[in-house]
Design a protein around this nucleic acid. Sequence first.
DNA 1: CTCAAAACATAACAATTGTCATATTTTAAT
DNA 2: ATTAAAATATGACAATTGTTATGTTTTGAG
Lengths: 151, 151
Amino acid sequence: MLSNACQYAIRSILYLSIHSNETKKIGVKVIADELETPQPFLAKLLQQLAKKKLVSSIKGPHGGFYLTKKNNENSLWDIVTCIDGTDKFDNCFLGLATCDDKNPCPVHFIVVPFKQKLLNDFRDKTIAQFTKEITLSGRVISLKDFNALKD
Amino acid sequence: MLSNACQYAIRSILYLSIHSNETKKIGVKVIADELETPQPFLAKLLQQLAKKKLVSSIKGPHGGFYLTKKNNENSLWDIVTCIDGTDKFDNCFLGLATCDDKNPCPVHFIVVPFKQKLLNDFRDKTIAQFTKEITLSGRVISLKDFNALKD
DNA sequence: CTCAAAACATAACAATTGTCATATTTTAAT
DNA sequence: ATTAAAATATGACAATTGTTATGTTTTGAG
């Protein structure tokens, strides 16, 4: 559904939301290690996200990536838009150019409500809100989290 | 979400369900033309589907592809399984190996109900049932259908 | 002011998916 | 029997996505 790239991007932003702030930056190496994602690939993604102001970054020694208050007010949808684009969600499930409520494809009314709900949740909920839920209810964003919960 | 291949496959099976039967076979050329899909690619797909008995076929002059009664009792899910496999639907939305109800990722409870419903609809409804709905309620499976409805 | 740690940029490589081309086999019609 | 229309099989090519590698720029610390 989402590309690997986008999954990594979402997880790393959630990770930064939990563990970083203006005074505590985190390097790619650490993030990639914690989330168990390929390091150079993640670096590229974080740069894309930085360009679109979805994450903040500082170069040089003790530099790294972090999320500002403002960054935390973005949505998962912003990340998806930045990495994957929205075609996957806009387009007809069977690939028809003409499919809509008036001229539905055979699965239109099965798929559309789901997509709508998903899109709303992704668009309306901020990163900060997700993070709150993650810390309060023990959500998992990496294998390490999973193992930590087991202890 | 679904691959192009799978979208073509579903549409061509629905097309065959509407327009073919044991005594009326249809060649790839016609199907590809009607659905406006690349012909050689569709041929390959139909062969995959034939191997898994999701469509029937006869070689030689006046041969072609068609759906038997039995073929019509299959589900869309059978097609998805045959062409794309089920990973996309089984796996965690964020790509985590450990994600489940007990150890949910941050979007788990947003995504799972939807996936469940989609999966049920795709698995429980037969091709025949879809076809009935298509003919009764004027569903669209190609641009040609769309234009026909406008007339 | 030099050095090293980090992000940033670019490009090479690999794997998957989508597409096209060519040849072979089957079979109905003549 | 021969022929031609179809499916079937195989492989080549292109495009996208995922991954890795290499080099450049920025900047804090000594």
